[in-house]
Design a protein around this nucleic acid. Structure first.
Lengths: 123, 123
DNA sequence: GGCGTATATTGATGATCGTCAATGTTCCGG
DNA sequence: CCGGAACATTGACGATCATCAATATACGCC
């Protein structure tokens, strides 16, 4: 009965439990369960074709922002569905929502996409 | 009846239909539906905490590769589940699988994570 | 004040996903 | 050839998701 394992020491898996819950600046001791769950949520927001297209369309807009009525038709989706996707992107910290009058204008959160790239780099 | 829309021209949505189906080097005419679906698949592979941890653990391994039996315990998942997740990561082009004897060794595909970061940058 | 418009929210439904138990497959050592 | 070990595959089940129709909210205008 061989059982050759490293990692046997049960991993420092749980969240650091220190006040600041962001990424540990130390080497890369393999993601803990908590951090992994947080970071997976961002990728989950990106894991839908229509949401990727929404981000792309918002980014492509010269004015830097788009309102829902501009986004709903090119996607071929109903307005409630588009609103739902936009909410997910806002909750993920990727889009910013500003309501002016009856319209809601969505724009990219400045460093957000770079931040996601950073997650990948420091995986 | 107002209906102020740009984008009215039905978008150049469909895939370029040229032989090379990769990313268009042109500006950023907003993702088409096909490209968006392909790119979303990569993010879907990343959109699970346990898969992120798997990538992290494989990357953290000094030898550059890990076999399943090393990965199954720290995650607290059954072996079939780990195999399933690894398959998804391989199918997404993020991990490489090499079978040596009874063991299967998984390693990061060299430029893969950078490639994903590139998708984000050129959204 | 009341109507139309832009957007958000709710509820429902079919599809996909994550997980496990059980089983199959391939390899190694005796 | 046989038993065991490492891994993959299958089938099932509960959970989550994407979408829509219907409804609610909030705003601008006559």
């Amino acid at each position: 009965m061989f059982r050759h394992n490293r990692y046997m020491t049960a991993l420092p898996t749980l969240a650091p439990a220190n006040g600041q819950d962001c990424c540990e600046p130390t080497g890369q001791p393999a993601l803990g369960a908590e951090e992994a769950k947080r970071k997976a949520m961002v990728f989950k927001a990106l894991a839908d074709p229509n949401r990727l297209r929404l981000l792309s369309m918002v980014k492509a807009e010269s004015s830097g922002e788009s309102c829902v009525c501009d986004l709903t038709e090119p996607l071929g989706l109903g307005q409630p569905t588009v609103s739902h996707h936009l909410k997910i992107l806002v909750d993920a910290g990727l889009l910013h929502r500003e309501k002016r009058g009856t319209w809601a204008y969505y724009s990219l959160v400045p460093g957000a996409l770079d931040g996601v790239a950073g997650i990948l780099a420091k995986l």
